[in-house]
Design a binder for these strands. Structure first.
Length: 509
DNA sequence: TTCCGACAGTGGGGTCGCAAT
DNA sequence: ATTGCGACCCCACTATCGGAA
């Protein structure tokens, strides 16, 4: 199959907003694919290379040769080229990679170059990725979509599920949980507070729910098969070698084969959790600080699959396998007040929040279902917009990402920047702020020519965020974590905005 | 007919390793 | 020794489609 065919399909998918039409376009292409190309094509349609890492990013594809006039590249040639690049390392590898890019892109037409650049940088924007590709696979292979989805979650990838789907429904149904093969982790939706979460999970007010402490660390899935232990992250990357303590704990448990779900985090001497940054640092390199596993679910134990068992059964099995010090703190209750008190205690103990769980629900691998609901406390500040950046994609032509500052008497400008945000804006707000910030632009030249537009610091905005973190990037030494816009405040002038002292005292990092 | 679940898109903070400078 | 890039941890929120209610 020619790359040009795939690129044309991608363009057709991007050109329609109808999901059904997208599926039809993808299915049409999949129907023409040769068996040996299937995995590559499925991966590419989903917007991902087959290689986990190529050493190429936006910079590596910014200087390109002149495009070819006629298409000639096949998808397998493209795959081979990236495969070769993924193996380059050591001195001189950057030069070799550069030559490989010139070779590959020199054979690509202008449209192919644009698509190649997009897939390298993870920016294939066609309104269809994994989930829509799965629909197309199900359609062409003539198997139930639910079976494809389940296989993809259990095999850890849509590509693996696609292979099985084309081998027939039996092969697809044969894909189950295998100890040693990572599955997509179950995710949580969110609620503003414990009462809302309880209301959703226990509408009658009598059904008990589980409330877990939400630890601010790295999500881990731990597989043990005899002496073999595998530890993977949320994106299923193998980090076994970096977490020896977790391996040790897994080996110490009284079962031979199991799959556990949990969180790893660094604890300080007094047992309180350290900042996420410390856990991240320790998880990326072995540096002495101990990282402790805390498990909250059990998916398999000694031949017994628990994925489809209700939560209360899985928790019972978890409690039997894992000692308390390696389990997440949990309360089971139907009482909203008890739940709220537990959440307050948990946050006071230094944790991120809580996750409320439906005790009757199965483990929905890869889904962000309503069976798990997270609740985190939210901080707010009134800050001043110092600058704004032009948006991209569907925000093209709108002033989008805003720079946030707190008042700071000691600074020359009177403000200190604490971060940026693009979150929380409706289309209506984007339209409003584009007009407003055009008026506040320091210079019409930068407004027109620059990606970042400096503003006169006059507009106050109410920002929600999860907490402060250490920063080397920003002059105040702190940055907001997960900042998002709540509303613009036209009732407040910049002199009424919060000061850096307020920020520091009000929120502990 | 309205409601709502699931997806994709738009980007934010940090950390590290690695190759080039 | 420093710098810039790539990879990967954590992530919130809105708009939209299409099936469920």
């Amino acid at each position: 199959m020619l790359l040009a065919e795939l690129v044309a399909t991608s363009a057709a998918v991007a050109a329609t907003r109808s999901r059904k039409a997208k599926v039809a376009a993808l299915a049409e292409l999949l129907g023409r694919v040769e068996p040996e190309e299937l995995e590559v094509v499925v991966s590419y349609l989903g917007g991902a290379l087959r290689q986990r890492r190529t050493g190429l990013g936006w910079r590596g594809v910014s200087d390109l040769p002149a495009p070819a006039g006629e298409p000639s590249l096949t998808v397998l040639e493209v795959h081979d080229a990236f495969e070769a690049m993924s193996h380059l390392s050591g001195s001189g590898s950057q030069l070799a990679r550069k030559e490989a890019v010139a070779q590959l892109f020199g054979r690509a037409t202008a449209a192919e170059q644009a698509w190649l650049r997009a897939i390298v940088t993870g920016n294939v924007r066609q309104g269809a990725l994994d989930a829509v590709t799965q629909e197309a696979v199900a359609q062409v292979a003539d198997v139930p979509l639910a079976a494809v989805r389940r296989a993809a979650m259990l095999a850890g990838s849509t590509v693996a599920a696609a292979g099985a789907a084309f081998a027939g429904e039996e092969a697809l149904d044969g894909i189950g949980l295998e100890v040693g093969r990572p599955i997509m982790p179950m995710l949580a939706s969110s609620a503003p507070d414990v009462a809302a979460a309880m209301g959703g999970l226990s509408p009658d007010g009598e059904t008990e729910v589980a409330i877990d402490a939400k630890l601010d660390g790295i999500r881990i899935q731990v597989h043990r098969d005899g002496d073999e232990v595998l530890v993977v992250t949320r994106s299923l990357d193998d980090i076994t070698g970096r977490l020896p303590e977790v391996v040790e704990v897994a080996r110490s448990l009284p079962a031979e084969r199991f799959v556990l779900d949990g969180e790893a985090l660094a604890l300080s001497g007094d047992g309180r959790p350290m900042a996420f940054q410390d856990t991240a640092s320790r998880t990326a390199q072995d540096s002495g600080v101990a990282v402790t596993p805390h498990f909250f679910d059990l998916l398999h134990v000694d031949g017994r699959d628990l994925l489809d068992s209700p939560g209360h059964e899985r928790l019972e099995a978890l409690d039997a396998l894992v000692p308390e010090q390696h389990r997440v703190r949990r309360l089971v209750t139907a009482d909203p007040q008890a739940a709220d008190a537990f959440a307050t205690e948990t946050v006071a103990a230094g944790h991120e929040g809580v996750v409320l769980k439906d005790l009757s629900a199965p483990y929905a691998a890869g889904r962000r279902g309503s069976a798990w609901v997270k609740v985190k406390p939210r901080h707010t500040l009134d800050l001043v917009v110092l600058a704004v950046e032009w948006g991209s994609g569907r925000r093209e032509g709108w002033l989008s990402n805003i720079h946030l500052g707190a008042r700071d008497e000691s600074s020359e400008t009177g403000f200190v920047m604490l971060g940026k945000t693009f979150k929380g804006m409706t289309d209506e707000m984007l339209a409003w702020q584009t007009e407003r910030f055009t008026e506040l632009a320091v210079s019409p030249t930068t407004l027109r020519d620059s990606y970042v537009v400096e503003l006169r610091p006059l507009q106050v905005v109410e920002i929600a965020f999860d907490g402060l973190q250490r920063s080397t990037r920003y002059p105040g030494g702190v940055a907001l974590r997960f900042a998002r816009v709540l509303r613009y405040r036209d009732d407040k002038g910049p002199h009424e905005a919060d000061t850096i002292e307020t920020v520091r005292s009000h929120v502990t990092a």
